[in-house]
Simulated scan of single mutants.
Amino acid sequence: MTDTELAAQLAHHAGRILLEVRASGMFEGKPLGKAGDQTANQFLCHALREQRPDDGLLSEEEKDDAGRLGNSRVWIIDPVDGTREYGEERSDWAVHVGLAIDGVATLGAVALPGLDGGTVLRSDQPSDLPEAAATPRLLVSRTRPAKEAVAVAERLGGELVPMGSAGAKAMAVVTGDAEIYLHSGGQYEWDSCAPVAVAKAHGLHCSRIDGSPLVYNQQDTYLPDLLICRPEWADKVLELVRELA
């Protein structure tokens, strides 16, 4: 099994586990989110340690092991990206399974189990980008829209589209439901590693909002901002962010 096949299988099965936890009716709201996080994390971590025992591992829900810093290959996972949306029984949450090699988000899979039939987008199955909308759509947080994104949307005459998890937003650009995902409100490596790997494979621009590369498997896992967008918008958005700084 290739690394990306493994990532896709793990994301898919973790998503099914999460749906079963939610369907059990044993939890609601925040307790549901906590139960989902812990259950999916156990499955993913056990499976990765079994299947790729020599690789490093970083998970949002696992105590960080500094030994990963000596690994070239490090799996970076988020068992439930968008725990609030999952707990609210919305569809805009995701499962992230990514592999960083020498600090680069190289491959991965993002599952969107809340969508009809479940969807898994993978870095080894790229497709052509759908036709872009004439008016750019910018994805923002449902609760904390990034001020840079709001300002850029105003300058572009664009439309703001509120959505839940980072993975759901990134994949909305991949599927053509939006053109730009600009975030500056604070994230960690597990929020973006798998989505960036998938987005890059589909031909999207991925960087920090100053245009510098996104670097993973760092001692400090805080990675506060990113830009994922169609390539034709990248230069203009980065220019506007510099002007607004």
Score class of each variant (00 low, 15 high):
residue 2 T to Y: 00
residue 2 T to V: 02
residue 5 E to Q: 08
residue 9 Q to T: 15
residue 9 Q to C: 15
residue 10 L to P: 02
residue 12 H to M: 13
residue 13 H to Y: 08
residue 13 H to A: 12
residue 21 V to K: 00
residue 23 A to W: 02
residue 23 A to F: 04
residue 25 G to F: 10
residue 27 F to W: 14
residue 33 G to S: 05
residue 35 A to P: 03
residue 36 G to K: 02
residue 37 D to P: 00
residue 37 D to Q: 06
residue 38 Q to K: 00
residue 40 A to L: 07
residue 43 F to W: 12
residue 48 L to R: 01
residue 49 R to S: 03
residue 49 R to Q: 05
residue 49 R to C: 02
residue 53 P to Y: 01
residue 54 D to A: 15
residue 55 D to C: 14
residue 55 D to N: 14
residue 56 G to S: 15
residue 57 L to F: 09
residue 61 E to I: 03
residue 65 D to N: 14
residue 65 D to K: 01
residue 65 D to L: 03
residue 66 A to V: 11
residue 72 S to I: 06
residue 73 R to F: 05
residue 76 I to K: 11
residue 77 I to G: 02
residue 77 I to K: 04
residue 79 P to A: 15
residue 80 V to T: 11
residue 82 G to I: 07
residue 83 T to A: 05
residue 84 R to Q: 15
residue 85 E to Y: 01
residue 87 G to V: 04
residue 92 D to S: 10
residue 92 D to V: 10
residue 92 D to H: 13
residue 95 V to Q: 09
residue 95 V to A: 05
residue 96 H to K: 11
residue 99 L to V: 04
residue 101 I to H: 07
residue 102 D to F: 01
residue 103 G to F: 01
residue 104 V to D: 02
residue 105 A to W: 01
residue 108 G to A: 06
residue 111 A to D: 15
residue 112 L to Q: 13
residue 115 L to R: 14
residue 118 G to R: 14
residue 120 V to E: 04
residue 126 P to V: 12
residue 126 P to M: 07
residue 127 S to W: 03
residue 127 S to P: 02
residue 128 D to Y: 00
residue 129 L to N: 09
residue 130 P to N: 09
residue 130 P to F: 10
residue 132 A to R: 07
residue 135 T to L: 15
residue 140 V to R: 06
residue 141 S to E: 09
residue 146 A to D: 12
residue 148 E to T: 11
residue 149 A to G: 12
residue 150 V to D: 05
residue 153 A to D: 04
residue 156 L to Q: 14
residue 157 G to Q: 06
residue 157 G to F: 02
residue 159 E to R: 12
residue 161 V to P: 01
residue 165 S to M: 08
residue 166 A to P: 00
residue 167 G to H: 09
residue 167 G to Y: 03
residue 168 A to H: 10
residue 171 M to S: 09
residue 177 D to H: 10
residue 177 D to M: 08
residue 180 I to H: 04
residue 180 I to T: 04
residue 183 H to A: 07
residue 184 S to D: 14
residue 184 S to F: 05
residue 185 G to T: 04
residue 185 G to C: 00
residue 186 G to C: 05
residue 188 Y to Q: 12
residue 189 E to D: 09
residue 195 P to S: 08
residue 200 K to Y: 00
residue 201 A to G: 06
residue 204 L to R: 10
residue 207 S to R: 05
residue 208 R to T: 08
residue 209 I to P: 00
residue 211 G to Y: 01
residue 211 G to F: 00
residue 211 G to L: 07
residue 211 G to D: 07
residue 212 S to K: 14
residue 213 P to Q: 11
residue 218 Q to C: 09
residue 222 Y to K: 10
residue 223 L to R: 06
residue 224 P to V: 00
residue 226 L to V: 00
residue 227 L to E: 07
residue 229 C to Q: 06
residue 232 E to K: 10
residue 233 W to R: 15
residue 233 W to C: 09
residue 233 W to D: 09
residue 233 W to M: 13
residue 237 V to L: 03
residue 242 R to A: 12
residue 243 E to G: 15
